[in-house]
């Protein structure tokens, strides 16, 4: 199964929940950090990185010997990555989305394949889990193609060695967030019971509804804020799966990079229960044994 940990608002605890779930997950799992703009899961899980590769996107380069300046490529391109003015042709590779239309449409065979670096993919292993992450190159605007590349590599990995996938998603509700959660079996929305948290939860809930997969809410910093989150979840029949209390010791543990499932037996049990609920929501049954506390 694939479980995505998402949220509308940033900083509600996606990474905290992803790391804790990875640590206690009762089956074989791959933890995948798809928050490629601000990837932080490795800071809490501490995996040993065993491999890296660059992620590239195919962009056009023009063979000036062959180009007839007909302008069909520039006309097709919706992203202003090619411009033709008289007998001058310019490419703006950083604008290119990699649709490949210019290669197909050029009647002179003058569009050659070049590459732009989107970022890096790194993978490895931690204590009982496999790990994979994308890291967007600083200055690169487009995170979705890098996320697709990370997912494709993850798919290959689990095709040869099946495992559950736990995805730490980016915040927000636009294309990067939707890209991250799109192929999941279950979506967790992590929020906090504050006006900002609730407003953004509603947006995330609306965004992810068309995906048609079971969703549940994990309330972080429960006890802070007000009741409107609970009212919304009740109205929408959105189940509240778990509530992590608002406590200073939890915030401090996070600030020193600790897993909150290691803080107390109660918190650990809470995450074991949350993992069971995820597996159940995916229509599967958990293996009975649970790994021992490290």
């Amino acid at each position: 199964m694939i479980l995505s940990i998402a949220s509308g608002k940033g900083g509600t605890g996606k990474t905290t929940v992803s790391a804790a779930l990875t640590s206690i997950w009762p089956r074989k799992r791959l933890a995948m950090d798809l928050d490629v703009e601000a990837p932080n899961l490795h800071l809490f899980l501490g995996p040993e990185i065993s491999g890296r590769r660059k992620s590239m996107i195919e962009v056009p380069r023009i063979d000036l010997e062959k180009c007839t300046y007909c302008g069909q490529c520039a006309e097709l391109c919706q992203f202003k990555a090619i411009s033709v003015m008289g007998e001058v042709i310019l490419t703006f590779p950083e604008m290119c989305h990699g649709c490949g239309g210019c290669f197909d449409i050029c009647p002179a065979g003058a569009v050659l394949a070049d590459e732009r670096e989107l970022g890096e993919i790194a993978w490895g292993k931690g204590d009982g889990f496999d790990f994979m992450m994308g890291r967007l190159r600083i200055g690169e605007a487009m995170s979705p193609p890098l996320m697709r590349d990370v997912k494709a590599l993850g798919d290959e990995m689990i095709a040869s060695d099946p495992a559950d996938v736990i995805i730490d998603s980016p915040p927000g509700v636009s294309c990067p967030a939707v890209n991250a959660v799109m192929d999941s079996d279950v979506i967790f929305l992590v929020t906090e019971p504050t006006p900002f948290g609730v407003y953004d939860l509603k947006l995330a809930h609306q965004s992810f509804k068309p995906i048609g997969k079971p969703m549940g809410v994990v309330v972080n910093r429960a006890g802070l804020g007000d009741e409107s989150l609970y009212d919304y979840c009740r109205e929408q029949n959105l189940p509240i799966l778990s509530e992590i209390p608002y406590r200073r010791d939890i915030a401090e543990a996070y600030s020193s990079g600790r897993l909150i499932s290691d803080l107390s037996e109660d918190l650990r049990k809470q995450f074991i229960d949350l993992a069971r609920q995820a597996i159940k929501m995916a229509g599967e049954t958990a293996a009975p044994e649970v790994p021992h506390h490290a």
């Binding site: 928050d35 967007l136 487009m142 995170s143 915040p171």
Partner: peptide, 10 residues
């Protein structure tokens, strides 16, 4: 501003 370092932040 938005979070992250991608398209909207740029």
């Amino acid at each position: 501003g938005p979070p992250g370092i991608g398209c909207p932040v740029i």
